[in-house]
Design a protein around this nucleic acid. Structure first.
Length: 502
RNA sequence: GGUCGCGUGGCCGAGCGGUUAGGCAGUGGUCUGCAAAACCAUCUACAGCGGUUCAAAUCCGCUCGCGACCUCCA
């Protein structure tokens, strides 16, 4: 199967054929979280989106080095000029903890949540504080190249100069250089140490009370936000790498400034393809920590929120996210989650059916065989087209109907070859588990000794079957109703009854 | 104010010039002791007004509504 991927490059604003810089190898950098508070759902959506992209690239056989950073210094609340405080330092002050304790605490929480959502860990997860010498070096390089200046111990990136000389500033976020330059007139009074309002700090002199600081040629201070990503992507992926990803809201200023820094230090752009995930909305508005419009993952899992009527499992959320394209906004509502939950179950149950159903052999090839193979091919084509998970999912659901039809006898195995059937089995496993990264939360048995449960259920369903054969409907219905109370659903099929939890 | 994007059927959500997206919900059937599940069929669409085209949800213009970024955010 030929798999040429097309992906939407934010830089060119169009879909491009993906051609790795080094055939067979892919370098991908995704901006990770600033660990100053609990992760919220919006973050999770971004990381799930890139997890699927990562998984798909790996599935296609690329050797992917996936770098996702942890920002643990430099990210300010507000702006340098207005006395912005480092987010981690502020939190440390408020919680009376060491900054590194804050970092550890929320980083652990972040990792736990990623695991809950079945997001694979990156190949390298570098931290800003672990790369201070490298950041100092890059600041120096940028100064040496004439794109930064020192001012009272802080170092600022000279955006007008860079914009004029490189012609690339603003290209990613669609900002016009003329507008940036023109800005200077109006905001002249508020620019503090900066020569121009759009200049940004790459090294910040720490005031004496600041909890995190390092020696540098300019001052005892700390690196500016944006710099860590330029430094760490360069260090682990090289000056030029394939994919840089992140949330839409990072396009400006974060990514724009990152590009500027890389240019300023190395003379060229860092990433070939820029991918941006779109925002998770709630009630039609961006879900953000900064205002109240938010729901935590924990609240979703427990149902403890005025926005939802019940609890939803992590995989229902993951499925919900798969149903929209990563570049589209996704509106979280209770109705949508309810629908996603049912869809998720239908998919997983069909997969259980599929895996447990063996081809009877002696079959020919018919239209159905062709349809199945075509749908499988299409599912891949959808993924190749800018990782279109909703469309790929749609193809899978069409296959679900085929599987159920074959199980229920509405469709005939006589039209499907054994090879196709086995291919279908494999394809489902690959898509559901390897690519989409879903987990089967309803599987009857898991690691902790559910052999006992299986045994009990077999016994109970066997007794109910006896009652049914004897037309003792009272007993059989009583068993079914009682199990339903325990959240166990019994489904009567032609070859006996099956059950699912939840 | 500047920049960008969006408005699809009861809900979510694909589509980007001509074909059934898909999920959930609804309706009618099949199956079933009944129910559930499953299968089959089926009803609600492309914000409004113009234009381009043989053909527009899809391209262009205008109007209305919404959102994001421009300040910390994934």
């Amino acid at each position: 199967m030929k798999n040429t991927i097309k992906l939407y490059n934010s830089l060119s604003r169009k879909k491009e054929v993906f051609e790795p810089i080094n055939e067979g190898f892919v370098g991908m950098y995704v901006c990770g979280p600033t660990v100053y508070s609990d992760v919220h759902l919006g973050n999770c959506r971004t990381f799930v989106s890139f997890d699927i992209i990562y998984r798909y690239l790996v599935h296609l056989g690329h050797k992917v080095r996936y770098v996702r950073n942890i920002t643990d210094v430099g990210h300010l609340v507000g702006d340098v000029d207005t006395g912005g405080e480092d987010k981690i330092a502020k939190r440390a002050r408020l919680e009376k903890l060491e900054p590194m304790e804050v970092v550890q605490k929320y980083m652990n929480g972040f990792h736990d949540m990623m695991k809950i959502f079945n997001v694979l860990p990156p190949s390298i997860e570098p931290r800003a504080t672990g790369h201070i010498p490298e950041q100092i070096k890059m600041v120096q390089d940028i100064i040496d190249n004439g794109f930064a200046y020192e001012q009272n111990g802080s170092v600022y990136f000279d955006t007008p100069k860079f914009a004029k000389e490189s012609g690339v500033y603003g290209a990613l976020s669609g900002r016009k250089i003329e507008d940036l330059i023109a800005e200077s007139r109006d905001d002249l009074k508020n620019q503090g140490e900066k020569k121009h309002p759009s200049d940004f700090a790459i090294w910040i002199k720490a005031d004496p009370t600041h909890l995190m600081h390092w020696d540098s040629p300019w001052s005892v201070g700390f690196p500016g936000w944006h710099l860590e990503c330029s430094v760490m992507s360069t260090k682990y992926l090289g000056e030029k790498f394939d994919i840089h990803g992140g949330g839409n809201d990072l396009k400006f200023p974060h990514h724009e400034n990152e590009v500027a820094q890389n240019h300023g230090a190395c003379g060229h752009a860092p990433a070939k393809y820029w991918l941006h995930g779109n925002m998770l909305l709630m009630n039609g508005r961006k879900m953000a920590k900064s205002d109240g419009n938010t729901i935590t993952p924990e609240q979703l899992f427990t149902g403890d929120s005025p926005h939802i009527s019940k609890s939803y499992s992590p995989m229902v959320l993951r499925f919900f996210m798969l149903q929209s394209h990563y570049r589209s906004t996704l509106d979280l509502t209770d109705d949508a989650l309810l629908a996603a939950e049912k869809g998720y179950r239908r998919l997983m149950e069909a997969n259980q059916t599929l895996q447990g159903l063996n081809h009877p052999g002696n079959a020919g090839e018919g239209d159905l065989d062709k349809e199945i193979n075509q749908l499988i091919t299409q599912a891949y084509e959808e993924m190749n087209d800018d990782f279109n998970t909703p469309k790929a999912l749609a193809r899978l659901f069409e296959l679900v109907s085929k599987v159920n039809g074959l199980k229920g006898g509405q469709l005939s195995f006589g039209e499907v070859t054994e090879a196709t059937w086995n291919n279908l089995k494999t394809t489902f496993q690959i898509f559901i588990y390897n690519i989409f990264g879903l987990q089967d939360e309803m599987a009857a048995s898991d690691s902790n000794g559910n052999g006992v449960l299986d045994g009990l259920m077999n016994l109970i369903l066997d007794m109910r079957q006896t009652a049914r054969v004897n037309k003792d409907w009272g007993t059989s219905d009583k068993i079914r109703d009682a199990l339903k109370e325990l959240e166990i659903k019994v489904k009567d099929g032609k070859e006996g009854s099956t059950w699912t939890v939840g």
